[in-house]
Amino acid sequence: MKAVDEVVVETGHGITGDRYENARHRQVTVQSADGLAAAAVDLGLEVKPAGTRRNITIDHGQVPTTPGARVRIGEVELEVVRVAAPCRILDDEIAPGAAAALRRRAGTVFRTVRGGTVRIGDEVSL
């Protein structure tokens, strides 16, 4: 994972250069800093955004999980596909128990309804 200040998101394709670019449904993953903080309490140590392998971390609020719900991040509009299940690799990458601590907090998988550029600091409409 590599942190960047902005990403280009293409309608129907996802984030340019991402390994899931052009995937049918798993185009963008979004997680919440609030969810990571709650997981950190359960785990007993900090859970850094990059450690979860999600594309975008919003700094406040809970990411919607109801299929069909929409989110706007800057000029990009996303539609919920499903909850993102935490991967067992997280137990090796972060700490034993990380996958369990992130269950139901690991973010949401979206498809791209309207593309554009997402930048750090963009407004998020949940």
Rank of each mutant, 00 (worst) to 15 (best):
G116V: 05
V80C: 12
I89A: 13
G51C: 00
R26P: 01
G74R: 07
E77L: 12
D59P: 00
T16Q: 11
V113W: 03
R103M: 08
G97F: 04
G68T: 09
P86M: 03
G74K: 08
V83F: 07
S125A: 14
N22T: 14
R82V: 08
I94M: 00
G14I: 11
E10I: 09
V80F: 07
V80P: 06
L36M: 09
G115W: 04
G68R: 09
S32A: 14
L90C: 01
L36C: 07
A23F: 13
A106M: 06
M1G: 13
V9M: 07
A84D: 13
I56V: 15
I56D: 09
A106H: 15
T16D: 12
L36Y: 06
H60N: 09
T112D: 04
R103S: 08
G115I: 07
R111F: 06
L126W: 15
R104T: 14
I73M: 08
I73Y: 05
Y20D: 11
L126V: 12
D92G: 00
R70A: 15
G116H: 04
V113A: 08
K48R: 15
A23V: 02
S32M: 08
A3W: 12
V9S: 07
I56C: 09
G74M: 09
P49R: 10
A98D: 00
D59L: 14
G44F: 03
D5P: 00
G12A: 09
A84W: 01
G51M: 01
G44H: 02
K48Y: 04
D59S: 13
D18S: 06
H13E: 14
R104M: 12
E46K: 10
N22E: 13
D91H: 02
D18Y: 07
L78T: 06
I120D: 04
V80R: 11
R104P: 01
Q62D: 13
D122W: 06
E21I: 02
G61P: 00
V80Y: 10
P96W: 05
Y20C: 12
T57H: 01
I94F: 02
G115T: 09
V7Q: 13
E79V: 11
L90M: 06
V7N: 13
G115A: 11
